[in-house]
Design a protein around this nucleic acid. Sequence first.
DNA 1: TATAAATAGGATAATTTTATCCGAATAAAA
DNA 2: TTTTATTCGGATAAAATTATCCTATTTATA
Lengths: 144, 144
Amino acid sequence: MFSKACEYGIKASIFIAFNSYEGKRVSLKAIAKEINSPEAFTAKILQDLVKNDVINSVKGAYGGFEIEKLNISKIKLSKIVNALDGDAIYSGCGLGLHKCDENHPCPVHDKFKSIREELKSMLENTNLEELALDVKSGISFLKV
Amino acid sequence: MFSKACEYGIKASIFIAFNSYEGKRVSLKAIAKEINSPEAFTAKILQDLVKNDVINSVKGAYGGFEIEKLNISKIKLSKIVNALDGDAIYSGCGLGLHKCDENHPCPVHDKFKSIREELKSMLENTNLEELALDVKSGISFLKV
DNA sequence: TATAAATAGGATAATTTTATCCGAATAAAA
DNA sequence: TTTTATTCGGATAAAATTATCCTATTTATA
Ligand code: FES
Ligand code: FES
């Protein structure tokens, strides 16, 4: 469904989010350990997220990654997915036609329509805050 | 969403299906042309589909691919997707945890649940016949 | 029986995705 | 000012996916 990069990116963002709530900045090392991802690859993904204004980075000793508290509830999953995987998953044609077009639909267009719309609206209506709170309270998990 | 192999496989199966309805066997060349896919790669995919009993092949002159008429309505999209991509798309964890587990859910588990179930039931309840008939009647398209 | 038209399948290549390595830049603290 | 802990970014490398090529095998027909 999502690329590995996107999976790591979502998990990393959640981990950064709930630490930022407590005013804690987290390092690449801590993130990779927490979400069980390869460190160097995760670094690249975090750089992408910084460029796309999902997270902020602070260089140097005692640096790391963080998200402005006020923004945590404003960042939607769709922003992360879009930054890392683009919008093909909910905008492109499910069978790889040049584009998804009502007037020139592929055989599964109608069947997929509602699923893709549900996916899109879920991604656009889910914010980092709710996901982070669930992890913090032990309702959901980032690894294993 | 699906791999290229799976996209080609679904489209090829639909094309074979509606030709089989008319008692026509189709060649690799004809399939690749009709669904706009690379011929040799498509050949590999068709071999997989033959091994998984989705389609039948006939070697030699005047050979090609076909599906038993009586089976066309029995073959579900899920069978094709499973043969080519496995079941990760609707059974695996959306964030790549080892497995999707109610008792150890990832942060998006609940959000994804209904989408993945809808996807699964759609794939399990859509058969080749309906898809093939739509293409045949010009309601949907296999390329461009 | 020879020929031609197909699929089967092994080997290989190209591309994309995933992953690693290392030096440069930055900034806090000693 | 030096050391240390970081992110940044370029260059590779490894693995997976996508794609191609070539030969063997099969089978209908001339
Ligand atoms: S045309 Fe294929 S999903 Fe819309
Ligand atoms: S645990 Fe991740 S989708 Fe169920």
